[in-house]
Design a protein around this nucleic acid. Sequence first.
DNA 1: ACCTGAACACCGTTCAAGT
DNA 2: ACCTGAACACCGTTCAAGT
Lengths: 240, 240
Amino acid sequence: MVARPQLRPDGTRATARVPLSPEDVVDAALALVDGDGFDSLSMRGLAKSMGVYPSALYWHAGNKDQLLALVCQRVLEEIALPPLDGTDWQDWIVTMGTDARRVLGSHPHLAAYFVSQLQISTSSLLLAERTLAVLSRAGFCGDSLLHAYNSVLGSIFGWISGEFAADPQDAGFAWREHFEAELRATDKQLVPTIRSNLPLVANHAFMLRWSSGQRVPMNGSFDFMLRSLTLGLAAQLDSG
Amino acid sequence: MVARPQLRPDGTRATARVPLSPEDVVDAALALVDGDGFDSLSMRGLAKSMGVYPSALYWHAGNKDQLLALVCQRVLEEIALPPLDGTDWQDWIVTMGTDARRVLGSHPHLAAYFVSQLQISTSSLLLAERTLAVLSRAGFCGDSLLHAYNSVLGSIFGWISGEFAADPQDAGFAWREHFEAELRATDKQLVPTIRSNLPLVANHAFMLRWSSGQRVPMNGSFDFMLRSLTLGLAAQLDSG
DNA sequence: ACCTGAACACCGTTCAAGT
DNA sequence: ACCTGAACACCGTTCAAGT
């Protein structure tokens, strides 16, 4: 629980005082989010885990919103950018998207917040630049360059947000039984396609699952989406 | 502020007591989220806006998580499902996606949470059924049916989550100047494509904007994404 | 510069008690 | 059945004061 125990049980300092850094605070915050979930992060709990008073955090991280922005930047920088040269533009998109999903999958409790903060920051510039450059070289220009760029980032990061969304609150609840009971209770005529594809979709499809992507990943669907996306962009390139 | 004023200024009841219903609570909660933002919704504030004690809400709505789930269901049910017959499958997806974006665009502060809760519920069954049915008739089956379904819902709802994400906290901040200053400060060689497309992307592209989709919608990019998505799915159908 | 310690104005939730 | 009223265990943030 206490990741940086500077206080002995009797309250005296165990080590010479080393000033906190913003990096320390970001590290500790990310560790708490990864461990206990996004909603469990509090400035007070974070301070306790670092062995300081809550107000000490405000010196380094501004406030909670700014701290979370720094945490998101840290995670964004984990995403590897494939080299521009020697890579087909469609492969570049697939590789980047796959790595973005890998990174956010390792911080699943942050994913939804991360995507809701897809805004301008110092560390977003490089990812934006490379993505724009790749699409520009592929032949997109003007409005279609903007739209292709937004399609790529919106689809990839948006998907990831949905996939790693939190499990329903009641972890002990028997969702499988509940789901199948509800399907049985629903008029047979209303949901025939779900019924005839039940093993295929149950707990594996958006809106028909009860586990998050952390527990039940959607690898195949994500790859399929990336492939559809690049195929679709290529088709737009030919027609436009 | 007080949407359901049952108390006179002197504290006596203005009307005969009408029991609250869960629907009342959901309505009032959605109104608060739409008006003041997602983070401004509190059980205590909601109770005050309805003229009751906080604990009264727990009788009808369980707790805050369950109340938010009900609010999301309410919004989900606003999405119109196009008729199955007489509609090309690609048109069906475009029409459904456009309406989903319209509905969530009218509740922009809920959008991010909504997408993080794309899980099973009574009201999600019909949207899931129709989407599966449309794709099934289009020719997808087995794994590719699952993947196509997830691609459609993940791309559409994920996008919407990103587009309507909240504005940065500091509303008074001069983002445009800050952005352009940062671009100027960044090494020219690092972001050439952004620089040469600056008017095109500034405040209009994911990770390069400082206003939410509520203030600066991304209509053209969303339509482009829907078209790429359906073109890509069609290509997968032919090849698989 | 960096942190303590206390204070302020909030939260979500529970529960006995009322009607 | 439905709500009051109070209580409990939390929050984020500020600010004077210390070192």
